[in-house]
Computed example of a mutant assay.
Amino acid sequence: MAVITINLPLAKKMLPPRKASSKKGDNGTVLVAGGSRFYHGAPVLASMAALRSGTDLVYTAVPRSIVTEVRSFSPALIALPLPDDKLTVGSANRLTAMLPKKPDAAAIGMGMTVAGPESIMSLARKLKEQGTKILLDASALLPEVLPEISNTGAVVTPHAGEYKRLFGEDAGKTEKERIANVQAMAKKHDITILLKGQVDVVSDGKKTGVNRTHNCAMTVGGTGDVLAGITAGLMCKVPAFEAALLAAYFNGLAGNLAFKRVGLHMASTDLLKDLPAAMKHFDTIAK
């Protein structure tokens, strides 16, 4: 299987134009479900990244205990309060019932405390039944959930440690090993895998790509949450493989712009600030 490297010309081909006549909702609605009593920032970063990626609406579902902190970050966030600090089956049911409209894509797990695998499975099942594309990150990367997301256009975004927890084996030490292992697991489970690292590896089992656009300041916490948000936003517009590969590239471009501006003193919010500049050169409008 040939492995492609994402670059500027390829990204321009993959990203579709926006219709000049489009109205609110035509460019995607995203649900971000995450957060906990200790981690309110992760779902905020993912939600703002989804908005900055060009999504029209983002609903941010977080525990009631942190909903005020989440709302205070930006008036652009539509925060939905969940009754429990942990994601339970009950709060998953509550969430799907309170959604104002069906999201095109959902990013689940950033900063989340999970009561058990069945809560993620329940939420994934309900979203899948209504046609929402699913992205799982962080705490939602549990092996029990894999059967629920197979053959649904779903994306998982693990780092090496999360990859081992999810699939039960190491991602590999060399780039060649990581590519081969990601390809095999993506094909086995019929999902798209975005394995984060110095070189991001993306595969849906049929196509494989790598992203080398990074810098060493991006080890700061929260850059993966931004990546998840960009990916979910793009999943509203393009197939899962293209969304994941483009997101890795744009996340890296934003990181490089932030590095030029602040050097090794980068925070993940710097990526949010520079993401529009990273993506605007790819903007096209169709009549």
Rank of each mutant, 00 (worst) to 15 (best):
A33N: 01
A33R: 00
G34L: 06
S36V: 06
R37N: 06
F38S: 12
Y39Q: 04
P43A: 08
P43I: 13
L45N: 01
A46L: 08
A46H: 01
M48V: 13
A49V: 07
S53G: 14
L57N: 09
V58A: 08
V58K: 06
V58E: 09
T60I: 09
T60P: 00
A61I: 08
A61Q: 05
V62T: 03
S65M: 13
S65D: 10
I66N: 07
V67F: 09
T68M: 14
T68Y: 11
S72E: 13
S72I: 08
S72G: 08
F73P: 02
F73L: 11
F73W: 14
S74I: 02
S74L: 02
L77C: 01
L77G: 00
P81K: 00
L82P: 08
P83E: 14
D84F: 10
D85H: 04
K86D: 15
L87T: 04
L87R: 08
L87H: 06
T88M: 10
T88E: 12
V89Y: 10
G90H: 09
S91V: 00
N93A: 04
N93H: 05
N93V: 08
N93C: 02
R94C: 14
T96G: 05
L99P: 03
P100E: 10
K101P: 02
D104Y: 12
D104C: 05
A105Q: 03
A107I: 12
I108N: 03
I108Y: 07
